[in-house]
């Protein structure tokens, strides 16, 4: 079993192995096996499509958490130039779980902020597995205010299981830090684009998630509580997380259906981790298009729309609020 593939991805892994073997044989025996390889590749594409055409919500959760899934750092290097990382909240410390700084997107200055989980063990520890502490949110807030001050648009990448549940985090006011970010972002006088690139875990995600455009990639999740947490509350068993995932309507399509986000960004066949270049191009296009739209708008109109959009959260689906 290949650990870089999820259980339902294993058939893809097997075909990948076969293709690799054929290529090897062709090379070693100097035989032209391109026809066979092409045939297998076609089969692979079809298989990927079949598997990913009908993922259950729980499978989407697992893709969103995929060990190979692109992170904030990956988009930072593929989409931006001149990334100058800025550190610290100027009050307590620098939180590795949230990265941020000034960069250029298509040559124009932007402020980029995102949660980073890390990939190697060392990185994971440095980034605290992408679980931010209050100083992380306060750093993000400082950078966002800096961006506002110099009329620079903000792009956030959301990828966290949630805010860090620790003693120190509570001591330093985790609730206040999250609340303050949401509060300030709702009136920040500069365009904000938020993109969920992996996990949108509860308040810890929302603290970077208030803006003029909220976009979810196709195989990401956004949820009020983790499926495991929900299952524990409902059935006292985290093992029923797959059922809870169904319940929580946490996929991008659900969030769009309930008008809580603006756009679902399609991913390459098999997910962003199968073809990072294509995934990255998709993100580039979505940022470029939305940024152009937002920058064409007057700031007071932008803020009015941002506000009105938030005020409708949950109302559109309400039977007894029609026409309100």
């Amino acid at each position: 079993m290949n650990l870089n593939f999820l259980d339902f991805e294993q058939p893809i892994a097997e075909l990948d192995a076969q293709i690799k073997e054929l290529q090897q044989v062709g090379l070693e025996e100097k035989r032209d096996l391109s026809k066979d390889i092409a045939k297998l590749d076609k089969k692979r594409q079809k298989l990927i499509q079949t598997i990913f055409a009908d993922l259950t919500p729980w499978q989407v959760v697992r893709v969103a958490r995929h060990p190979q899934r692109p992170h904030t750092v990956d988009y930072l290097s593929s989409l931006f130039t001149e990334f100058d990382e800025l550190h610290g909240d100027r009050m307590f410390g620098d939180d590795g779980a949230i990265m941020g700084g000034l960069a250029r997107f298509n040559g124009e200055p932007v402020m980029v902020i995102g949660q980073e989980k890390g990939r190697t063990t060392k990185e994971k520890v440095h980034h605290n597995f992408g679980l931010p502490r209050p100083e992380g949110y306060r750093k993000a807030l400082r950078l966002m205010r800096l961006a506002e001050h110099f009329a620079i648009p903000i792009i956030t990448f959301i990828d966290t299981q949630g805010a860090y549940p620790g003693i120190d985090a509570e001591e330093r006011g985790q609730s206040e830090a999250i609340a303050r970010n949401i509060f300030v972002m709702s009136t920040l006088k500069t365009p904000i684009i938020c993109i969920v690139i992996g996990e949108g875990g509860s308040g810890g995600a929302l603290a970077l998630g208030v803006g003029d455009r909220v976009i979810m990639m196709q195989y990401t999740i956004y949820s009020v509580i983790s499926p495991e947490g929900c299952a524990t509350i409902l059935w006292r068993s985290a093992e029923r997380a797959p059922e809870a995932a169904e319940n929580l309507k946490l996929t991008a399509q659900d969030a769009k259906r309930f008008k809580l986000i603006d756009e679902v960004l399609a991913e390459p066949a098999g997910g962003a981790h199968r073809d990072f270049a294509a995934a990255s191009e998709g993100v580039r296009e979505v940022i470029a298009r939305n940024l152009a739209e937002l920058q064409a708008e007057k700031i007071d109109i932008l803020l009015k729309k941002r506000y009105e959009r938030m005020m409708r959260f949950g109302l559109d689906s309400h039977a007894n609020s029609q026409g309100k």
């Binding site: 609340a179 949401i182 509060f183 300030v184 709702s186 009136t187 509860s202 308040g203 929302l206 998630g209 208030v210 956004y222 949820s223 009020v224 509580i225 929900c230 509350i233 319940n247 929580l248 309507k249 946490l250 659900d254 969030a255 309930f258 809580l260 941002r306 506000y307 938030m310 005020m311 959260f313 949950g314 689906s317």
Partner: peptide, 26 residues
Amino acid sequence: GARMQEALISLMQMAKTSAALARLAG
């Protein structure tokens, strides 16, 4: 906290109520 039975709609009430408070502060 947020009401689990309304899932993401509940989470977004955090944004809705906070944004309204920002207006009050304004």
